[in-house]
Amino acid sequence: MSSKVDTNKFIPRFVSHHFSNADQEFESCKLGMWLFLLTEFMLFGGIFVAYVVFRTWYPETFESGAEKLDWKMGAVNTVILITSSVTMAVAIREVQLNRKGRALALLLFTVLCGMGFLVVKYFEYNHKFELGIFPGDFFSFMGDHMSNEHLYFSIYFMATATHVLHVILGLLAILWVSWRTAKGEFYEAYYTPVEMVGLYWHLVDLIWIFLFPLLYLTK
């Protein structure tokens, strides 16, 4: 908890050859990251548009489909992700304050949360598959359902699977910065990668915050 920093512990780092100073580099990275997040938004935007179109056409189908999802599991996952976003944000703060140990602990806790999310998602998927709820033509659910309910689950699986893919990539990125944090590469004057990964993780979180009510809470 001491904020004393032994700067000698850190590997000195120079600004890349084509930037004139660290500020310029940091600002550039930040802008680049935001642009990348924008592309992610547009990517998910496609799925959201498909969702809106089909929901407008078949509102009952979407209600009936959403009833088959377990909103409690979705809610648990929402809480997990929001928590992880908070710990991620605090981790960045700790890096900025040169508290390496705390930062590392928080980063690893974030990873744990992400994994928890995946575990819950695994159980959810598994349950659906056991019931025969598959996307599209493979839909073989025998209970009460609307004739075109496979469309709802096509969108559900496409959206959540794409999101899960992003969670996994996010986790790998967090592990990478954790490792670099452990090596002591980040300190108050240089923490760009942690900040960028943090931004990415918030996006992953944010997309889930859209997906959860849209998919689980349609009624």
Binding site: G46, D137, S154, F157, T162
Partner: peptide
């Protein structure tokens, strides 16, 4: 385009039907 092509691939492999 990325998501469109992904959906097209999913259409052919998983028969998503969108």
């Amino acid at each position: 385009l990325g998501i469109t092509l992904l959906l097209l691939i999913a259409e052919r492999t998983l028969q998503v039907g969108i």
